[in-house]
Design a protein around this nucleic acid. Structure first.
Lengths: 142, 142
DNA sequence: CACAAAGCTTACGTTGACGTAAACGTTAGA
DNA sequence: TCTAACGTTTACGTCAACGTAAGCTTTGTG
């Protein structure tokens, strides 16, 4: 099913405790609790509650991972929301599915552009580094 | 030399006119003139002037390309400044060169992380797409 | 019991990266 | 000559993504 991407491998370390407090998640992913609450404010996360206290599930944790991956790639939270929503079901409407496939292709194009950008940047860095080392050799003993 | 990365191939189309107005650059790279002036405000570009009017050189054009590439990768303008400065000379100081090499390695690590993120995202997208198509087949005739 | 640690809400503040408007100078063409 | 197109500066506005502070409840511990 389409939800597969949001399910994580059973996590053989911490078996039963498939629950996380806000500070746990905060520490694990090195984000502030403020950010986690913010992501909830804008509907990117929706932990359940025990009383007032937020309880994060495995799915929440996975969503957070996707959010942060998106951030590393320079996506806005809105962009991430779109992408994350791609993994969600409930899009049984055929037109929606077709639109979704288009959106996926669009994202793919952007990512491929990024791949290209990165490979160029890596090349440039290598060149810059080589120039540095060269300068060190040439200049290092004057 | 270390400036090599900032020099462009002689550009066999427009030979002599190695000069660009702000609107030319703006159109060519699809950015607003406001952005170009902003990049200058924060010292990322420094076109010469004819009177008051900005004149952009090939080097400026290349710097702009690097800035925009950085943006596509989600870098802040400050990050881009650091990277761009890596290509600059005037770092004849040996300690600076060594620090530079470290900075380059750091950037390389970040980029490799991005590569990893992207490949994962691409995989996820493929999976989501496959799920979509599957849903279309299964559901398309009910 | 007191009090520190962790949680909560509300709400104003901040930073980066520009957008937008006002008010003005220069130059080419009808 | 005048006006349309392009250029300039100055300066306030905006939006996303949180930071930060205030004030309050809940919970475990010496």
């Amino acid at each position: 099913m389409a939800t597969k991407a949001l399910q994580t491998a059973p996590d053989k370390g911490s078996d039963i405790s498939t629950e996380y407090s806000i500070s746990q998640l905060s520490q694990e992913f090195d984000v502030t609790t403020r950010s986690l609450r913010h992501y909830e404010d804008i509907g990117l996360l929706c932990p359940t509650r025990r009383g007032q206290t937020r309880i994060y599930s495995q799915a929440d944790r996975t969503r957070l991972r996707l959010i942060l991956r998106g951030k590393r790639l320079g996506l806005s939270l809105e962009d991430s929301r779109e992408i994350i929503d791609m993994y969600e079901p409930g899009k049984t409407n055929i037109d929606q599915l077709k639109k979704l496939i288009d959106a996926i292709q669009l994202q793919r194009n952007k990512l491929n552009q990024q791949l290209d950008d990165i490979s160029k940047l890596l090349k440039d860095l290598s060149q810059a580094e080589a120039d540095c080392i060269d300068a060190l050799k040439t200049n290092g003993n004057t």
